[in-house]
Write a protein that binds this DNA or RNA. Structure first.
Lengths: 202, 202
DNA sequence: CCCATAACTGAACATCCGTTCAGATCAAAG
DNA sequence: CTTTGATCTGAACGGATGTTCAGTTATGGG
């Protein structure tokens, strides 16, 4: 957590780069399972195999633990999206967005769950940050829809509402999908893309 | 809460039929705003204007307070749906379902929020009950979709997935709709119906 | 006006909470 | 092998938690 730019000049007795990620992962899993408010620092510590006081080598407080998880998730989402080169044309772009959204979210169910359910447990300042990142992601989709409407390919009454409707529909996949189930991620992508395509079609 | 069938033979000093609903309403509002685990019995009591101990005249414990709110919400949902006479034909039925779902959910945002977010804070037995009620509601929509597919009016790959996708999309309306906003509920219904109709169209 | 009783108070119970910190422990650098 | 400092323990802090209950207050029926 406290890296010093260059290669960190590690000194004696240090393995915080092992424990640090374990703290974050334990917190994520427990927050997703039981909710932020219902999980105690002692439970997180027990999961890591450490006493509660030791957690404070890795986070200033419990709120930062939640916020860092959510900001990390949103950063990953935006970075992964930005890393892809977008296909040409609104229709191909929309399919790309649909498949990306489903794939990304199905790969990290815990982070998705926490990021959608624990917004109200953020301080107002932290909430504003997460809300801004989420807004940037939504704007990405809305731009696609607007371009499609402009080109006469799509027909939606209100691009902002359509954006939120599509994202709600796609994110809903995380509530029922199980990796052991009968459908592969690719099949699920195709099923949802079929519905999205028709829903906004002209 | 403890009614005796007939007209309750109320005796001296009783006004629990005033305080009782106030407890439920305060709990609902606070649970929706801050989450079940983050709200204390003392906060609920303060909202009602009473000491914490008095709440136990109206609920055996905090868990029952949550469960009764959620069961009440689901019962209302199923009862309201059952009270409507269904139009003829899958298309009209689907429109009816869409408009009903949006209207019903926009009328009780707190109950919707609690019922979707606090499932993990139910005991396993209570969870099973709520899950069963939700399943009955979903089956209602799935029957409509299946009938439409059978009649060649709809084209969906998997009626179960389409059911969950449509419900997720529709319920998402509660996250952004504000009564003071520019759109009436009827307008929102029409916008979503447009998308639902096309999404499942043959 | 009295009185049975519903409704509520206020204090107490054991237990948990997030956070702090002095001191023990540990691993690597010299 | 010693030193150095990162890491962790274990106890403590004030305060909050859900729940219980003996005792007080308020209300309407007789």
């Amino acid at each position: 957590m406290f890296s010093y730019g260059y290669v960190m000049a590690r000194t004696a007795g240090s393995h915080s780069d092992i424990t640090g990620p374990r703290v974050a992962q334990a917190a994520l899993q427990l927050f997703a399972r039981h909710g932020y408010a219902a999980v105690s620092m002692r439970q997180i510590a027990a999961e890591v195999g450490v006493q509660a006081g030791a957690l404070y080598n890795y986070t200033p407080d419990k709120q930062s633990l939640l916020f860092d998880l959510m900001r990390g998730h949103m950063d990953e989402l935006l970075a992964a999206r930005a890393a892809l080169l977008q296909p040409d044309g609104p229709l191909a772009r929309l399919e790309d967005f649909t498949r990306f959204h489903i794939r990304f979210h199905l790969e990290r169910p815990d982070a998705v769950f926490v990021s959608y359910m624990e917004l109200r447990n953020l301080t107002p300042a932290n909430f504003a940050v997460i809300e801004g990142l989420r807004r940037r992601y939504e704007d990405d989709l809305e731009a696609i829809l607007r371009a499609g409407v402009g080109a006469g390919l799509f027909d939606v009454t209100d691009t902002k509402i359509a954006t939120l409707a599509v994202i709600a529909m796609l994110t809903g996949v995380t509530t029922w999908y199980r990796a052991e189930g009968r459908l592969s991620v690719a099949q699920v992508e195709t099923i949802y893309w079929d519905m999205v395509r028709k829903a906004v079609a002209a």
